[in-house]
């Protein structure tokens, strides 16, 4: 099967359950937004996929191959992580050269060209780079690998607007020619909203929803008006949250938009992804 399959994965830290029997798949060839609040279990799951930590129960399969301690997935999967795992005393260019030895699918020329685009000095040691440029280095490493599955954990942290734009450009430029699955774990939902095709939302160690971005944007909407009218409208519908502004009430809903009754003073407006996730994860918190 062409996918990263997460099967019934559970991970506990002492008495905290970080992941609770999580099962879903990242299908091949899509760009995913992997979203969730801090401590929702995102990093834990990414670390399990990347064989950095082990699941207590369940397993992860990459194209049907178990990912745990298995060199067969070495050329298939790469994870750019927020944590700095790279050797700090090595120069950037030496990191690239070692990656070329480690991976068959590493494009050394491309790495140097991309470094030039970002104006990254390849003669610097990793530890001498600013936080932003350390992130850039890690992004270049990931972009220069032609693996089938690439995971970006908070990719644009510490990058300025120009570098973010450049990163998204490069990501999309390669995506079509390469046949890849890109998984972006991030807090900056609005920034990736147009890029991601499908969303996986995780909260409190469980998958809250997996849905195509289009469907989410089509089915998520906001109703506003007098509290009484809003409550009448919302009866029997899937409301994921409310906001109140004096006597004005806003309700956030998921599902088919029902026609507003004739002469209604209610207003319908679209709900963006950011709002959707805030409301969904708030609901989980109550």
């Amino acid at each position: 099967m062409n996918a990263i399959q997460i099967k019934n994965v559970t991970k506990r830290y002492h008495d905290v359950t970080a992941l609770d029997h999580v099962s879903f798949s990242f299908a091949f060839g899509k760009i995913y937004g992997f979203l969730g609040r801090n401590g929702a279990g995102k990093s834990t799951l990414i670390n399990i996929i990347a064989n950095r930590i082990f699941a207590d129960e369940g397993e992860v399969l990459v194209d049907g191959i178990p990912a745990r301690e298995n060199m067969l997935v070495h050329e298939k999967l790469f994870c750019m992580s927020e944590a700095d795992l790279y050797e700090k005393n090595l120069k950037v260019k030496d990191h690239f050269k070692w990656m070329q030895r480690f991976y068959d699918c590493f494009d050394l020329d491309k790495a140097f060209q991309t470094a030039e685009k970002f104006e990254l000095d390849v003669n610097q040691k990793f530890k001498a780079l600013s936080k932003g440029y350390q992130s850039i280095f890690k992004l270049i490493a990931a972009l220069s690998l032609n693996v089938r599955y690439v995971i970006f954990d908070e990719p644009v942290l510490g990058l300025d607007a120009n570098h973010r734009e450049l990163f998204y450009d490069l990501l999309l430029r390669d995506f079509e020619t390469r046949e890849q699955t890109i998984i972006i774990a991030t807090h900056l939902i609005e920034e990736v909203a147009n890029i991601i095709e499908e969303v996986v939302l995780i909260d409190k160690g469980k998958v809250l929803l997996q849905e195509s971005t289009d469907t989410l944007l089509e089915t998520g909407y906001c109703i506003s008006g007098l509290a009484q009218d809003v409550d009448d409208y919302c009866r029997g519908k899937n409301v994921i949250g409310y906001d109140e502004l004096g006597s004005l009430k806003l309700a956030y809903l998921l599902g088919e938009k029902a026609q507003l009754p004739q002469g209604s003073h209610l207003q319908i407006s679209p709900m963006n992804l950011q709002k959707l996730f805030v409301k969904l994860t708030e609901k989980g918190g109550n």
Binding site: A50, R52, F78, S81, E87, K88, F102
Partner: peptide, 16 residues
């Protein structure tokens, strides 16, 4: 510590 982190980042298994 450093080598373990570096090699894990580059996708190597603990056996390797």
């Amino acid at each position: 510590r450093e080598d373990f982190r570096m090699l894990i980042q580059n996708g190597f298994t603990r056996k390797y």
